[in-house]
Simulated assay, not measured.
Amino acid sequence: MKKIFINILFFAYLNAAFPNWYYKIKNIQQQKKAFVEIMLPLIQTENQKISALRKKIIKIFNDPNLMLNPKEIGFLAKIAKKYKIKNILDKTEYLKKIDTIPPSLALAQAAIESGWGKSRFVRLANNIFGHWEYSNKGIQPKSKYENIDINYSLKVFPSLEDSIRAYMLNLNRNPAYKEFRNVRFYYKLNNKKFTGTIAANTMKLYSQKRDEYVKLLKTMITLNHWEKFDK
């Protein structure tokens, strides 16, 4: 176990793809545990970055006079562009879009989309959440959805960290996940805990499986007791 722990630390330091030793684990429960030990710190790190940005946004808007200097205006404009916020002075929109993702949800989607990190898209492209891209610079899937007339490939990421960051940005700004953001915002306003199983109900558009995908997410979170990571 000591060797595995050292390998995990070394992996996290490099932000590399899943290491070879991970794929050599034969015991399913041990591999699931290793999956969480690899992914959870990276998920938490990205959430911490989002939290820090959110605090900075709140600090700017908490100025009683809201006398923004050119530097702050430039900063808000940059963030607004990144998160697709139309009005750079719309505080509510910033707070809806710049917030953390329940770790249990991220773990469940990572496990489902990547086959517990075993898919060739993870091995070749660090693509753990099944992200598409449309410039033909990615990896071609072996089979495509029959009912989708779109020329897409699987996006290549420099590291798992980049894949996680893109996943979180996707949930925080893509129109498809507006319900996710609205529900999260409601729970925060009412000081209620926004868990992965609650968030899963808003993920119908993430997969072609729709309602079946939502059930799969909730089952994955519950069976693995991952909501404990949402504290």
Rank of each mutant, 00 (worst) to 15 (best):
I101D: 01
Y134A: 04
M67W: 14
P103C: 08
Y206I: 05
L205M: 15
K178V: 00
N62P: 09
K97A: 05
E179R: 15
Y13I: 12
A80G: 12
Y145D: 10
K82Y: 04
I88F: 05
Y206R: 00
F75W: 08
D162T: 12
F185L: 09
I148D: 10
W116Q: 05
F75D: 01
K155E: 09
N69V: 04
K59P: 05
G74V: 01
K193S: 13
E146C: 08
K49N: 06
N47V: 11
R173I: 02
I139G: 06
K84D: 07
F229R: 03
F75E: 04
A77E: 13
V214G: 11
L217W: 01
F5D: 12
N15G: 15
E212Y: 15
I4Q: 10
V36W: 15
T219N: 15
F185Y: 13
I198D: 05
N172I: 02
G138W: 00
L205Y: 08
R165T: 15
R181V: 06
L216E: 11
A176P: 04
A106S: 08
F129Y: 07
P70H: 15
F75H: 01
K33T: 13
K71V: 07
L223C: 07
G74A: 04
P70I: 10
G115S: 09
P41C: 03
N65P: 07
K86R: 08
L53C: 08
G117Q: 12
L205R: 09
L223S: 12
P19N: 03
Q140G: 06
K2G: 06
T100A: 11
P64Q: 03
S135V: 14
I60R: 05
V214T: 10
I88R: 04
A17D: 15
P102G: 04
L124E: 14
K71W: 04
L76R: 00
I112S: 06
N7F: 05
R173L: 13
A111G: 11
F10N: 13
E93Y: 03
S104I: 00
P103Y: 12
S207C: 07
S159G: 06
K218C: 08
L40D: 00
S119I: 05
R173Y: 04
Y213H: 09
K91L: 14
Y83A: 07
K49T: 11
L154K: 08
L160G: 00
K137M: 07
I85S: 03
L160C: 01
N127W: 08
L89T: 11
N47L: 09
P175A: 05
L223E: 13
K56H: 13
Y187H: 10
H131S: 05
R165L: 06
Y206L: 02
F121Q: 01
K82G: 05
E37M: 14
I60C: 03
D90W: 02
S104K: 02
Y22R: 06
Q48W: 13
P70V: 07
A12K: 14
P175G: 01
I85Q: 02
M220A: 15
